[in-house]
């Protein structure tokens, strides 16, 4: 059986000096791969490369044994969803935001309101929030709503860039529990995450693996 998700000898350069980063790793189904390293080590760039939003110099990525180039960029990104540290909030209500990706041509299935409401509850958000103007949300609410938007879109792999940055410990824990359920209850899911927060270690029952991107200047 092919590996669930794997990136092989990815090589890219970052910063003004063009420092080269080389990295390989893989991710098992239902687990989390945590990317660590100091700022400027190229963690965000790696996530962007995995989503094919930035280009790398060398290397290949495989999803369930299929080379990334055998997918169109659009199909790939609908399976490997990158969630930026500060993802965009679109004009309109929270509901409009959750529905937004479903208007895209690539998305064939329908938006499910019940799932969205359940998600809000699981993320310890008030379900009345759904009719609120999305631009009036707090930082912590925005982080959870945009995460929910990605989960509802049903990707295989979530690429999360500092998902806990705007969250207090309680919210971070409910986000982790939420992600755990997403990983464990259904098949075909995995997470690659850049974070400085060790909260994922407190949650039992998820396999995690860490890789460290070397410090700037050290290869």
């Amino acid at each position: 059986m092919p590996e669930f998700f794997k990136f092989d000898q990815i090589e890219y350069h970052i910063g003004a000096a063009g420092r080269t980063v080389k990295v390989s790793s893989d991710l098992e189904e239902g687990s989390i791969l945590v990317i660590k390293g100091p700022s400027g080590a190229g963690k965000t760039t790696l996530l962007r490369i995995l989503a094919r939003l930035s280009e790398c110099d060398k290397g290949q990525v495989f999803l369930q044994g299929h080379n990334w180039l055998s997918y169109s960029p659009q199909l790939w990104r609908s399976k490997i969803n990158y969630l930026a540290q500060k993802p965009a909030v679109f004009n309109g209500t929270v509901l409009d935001n959750l529905k937004k990706p479903f208007a895209l041509k690539i998305k064939k299935d329908m938006f499910n309101l019940d799932e969205a409401i359940d998600g809000l509850r699981e993320l310890s958000l008030n379900e009345n929030l759904i009719h609120q103007d999305a631009h009036t949300l707090s930082g912590g609410e925005t982080a959870r709503i945009t995460l929910l938007r990605s989960i509802l879109f049903k990707p295989n792999i979530l690429l999360l860039d500092e998902p806990f940055a705007f969250l207090d410990d309680n919210s971070a824990r409910s986000v982790m529990e939420f992600l755990k359920r997403w990983l464990v209850n259904k098949t075909g899911h995995g997470i690659v995450m850049v974070t400085h927060n060790d909260i994922y270690k407190d949650i039992s029952g998820i396999e995690t693996q860490e890789i460290e991107l070397s410090e700037p200047g050290v290869n």
């Binding site: 989503a51 939003l53 659009q74 199909l75 790939w76 990104r77 609908s78 969803n81 990158y82 969630l83 930026a84 500060k86 993802p87 965009a88 679109f90 937004k100 990706p101 895209l104 041509k105 690539i106 998305k107 879109f153």
Partner: peptide, 16 residues
Amino acid sequence: ISEIETLLSFGASPWE
């Protein structure tokens, strides 16, 4: 740019 990249990361075409 952040809206555009968010849409792209959901699999939007350049035009979308």
